Simulated scan of single mutants.
Amino acid sequence: MDAFEELAEYGQIDTQGYELFVARTLRAARSRGYPPPDGAGRWRIEHAQDVVQELFVTKGSALTLSLLEATSLDSLERLVTTIVQNFLADSAKSTEVGKLRSRLEGLMASDERFVEVGKDRWALADGPTDASSHDFTALARTARGVRGVRLNLPLNTGGPTSRPNVEALLAVAHAVIGHADGAVRGQELTRAVAARFGLLPQHSVPLPGPEETATAIEAPGPGPADTVVGHSAAGDLFQELTIEERRALACAADELTASKMADVLGRGRRQATAILDRAREKVRLATTDEEHGSVVSELVTLIMLWNGKASSDSSSTDGESATTVAAEARSDR
Rank of each mutant, 00 (worst) to 15 (best):
E5A: 11
A194N: 07
H203N: 14
A327F: 09
A168Q: 10
P35Q: 12
D254Q: 10
A109H: 15
L207V: 11
G182F: 03
V228G: 05
D313F: 13
S75I: 00
A234Y: 06
E77W: 08
V117T: 09
P154V: 05
T161L: 12
R330N: 01
G33N: 08
R163A: 13
E328S: 12
A192V: 02
D38M: 13
V84Q: 12
V22A: 04
D74W: 12
G198F: 07
F4L: 00
A250D: 14
V115E: 15
L139T: 02
A286H: 03
L200N: 06
L20Q: 08
V22Q: 08
E54Y: 02
R247D: 11
S66A: 15
A40I: 01
V205E: 04
A183L: 02
T242I: 00
L302T: 00
L237A: 00
L100K: 09
L237Y: 09
V172R: 01
L68Y: 03
L305W: 14
T58F: 14
L285G: 14
T82I: 00
T324I: 10
V176Q: 06
G221N: 02
E116H: 04
Q271F: 05
G223R: 14
S94R: 14
R196F: 02
Y10T: 09
P164C: 03
D289M: 11
A8F: 01
E211A: 15
A89H: 05
A233V: 10
D90L: 12
S133K: 13
L249Q: 08
T82D: 14
A168M: 12
E244I: 00
L26E: 13
S162N: 04
L237D: 07
R333C: 06
T215M: 03
A253R: 13
V264G: 06
T317V: 11
Y10F: 15
T129G: 06
E77Q: 09
L26P: 07
R278S: 15
E245G: 03
H174W: 08
A258T: 13
S102M: 11
E46F: 00
V146R: 05
L199E: 07
T64V: 10
F87V: 01
L207P: 09
A216K: 14
D50Q: 07
Q12R: 14
N307P: 06
R144Q: 15
T287V: 12
F197D: 00
V300Q: 03
L189C: 05
V295I: 14
K260Y: 12
A3Y: 08
V51Y: 01
G209W: 00
G230V: 00
G186V: 01
D318H: 11
Q12G: 15
Y10V: 03
T257G: 13
M304T: 11
L63K: 08
A29M: 10
V264R: 01
S312Y: 08
G268M: 04
S259I: 14
F136E: 09
E77I: 00
L55Q: 04
E298G: 15
A123C: 02
E290K: 01
N165W: 00
L241Y: 03
E218M: 06
A219H: 11
P210H: 06
V51N: 09
G159F: 02
R113C: 02
A48C: 05
L249S: 03
H231G: 15
D2T: 01
H231A: 15
K282M: 15
R78S: 05
D289L: 10
H174C: 07
D38S: 11
M1D: 13
E218V: 10
G319W: 13
D74A: 07
E255K: 10
D111A: 01
